[in-house]
């Protein structure tokens, strides 16, 4: 297990917090909490070690398109980059409702 922390510039806080996903095989859980500060703070706890660069790339790409100012807690159980991106989009969509 490995814990990773990232920060990205962001200016659009979501309307409300959101929770999506489960810590199950090939999936992850995301807790998104709105923040006033101009950053997206991401903490990743992943069951798979050694993928720091992949995580950075996936998250950089996501937060370049979705500048959501919030704290993101990701509890990952081996999700692929595609699943991670879909879950992040789902969390952001829930936060808009």
């Amino acid at each position: 297990m490995q814990t990773l922390n990232f920060e990205f510039p962001a200016d659009r806080p979501p309307l409300r917090r959101a929770h999506v996903g489960v810590v199950g095989s090939g999936d992850l859980e995301i807790l998104m909490t709105p923040e006033q500060a101009g950053t997206a703070r991401v903490r990743v706890r992943t069951s798979v070690d050694g993928f720091d660069t992949v995580w950075r790339t996936v998250l950089e790409r996501f937060f370049a398109r979705h500048r959501v100012a919030a704290a993101f807690e990701l509890n990952d159980f081996g999700a692929t980059p595609g699943v991670v991106t879909l879950r992040l989009r789902q969390a952001v969509e829930e936060g808009r409702r």
């Binding site: 297990m1 917090r17 489960v22 807790l31 706890r45 509890n75």
Partner: peptide, 21 residues
């Protein structure tokens, strides 16, 4: 006691298992 109450297991992380909120 939903996910945002964050009452997760304190025993999993020290054993290298990712907890759920």
């Amino acid at each position: 006691c939903g996910p945002f109450d964050r009452i997760e297991s304190p025993w999993l992380e020290p054993q290298g298992v990712v907890p759920q909120s």
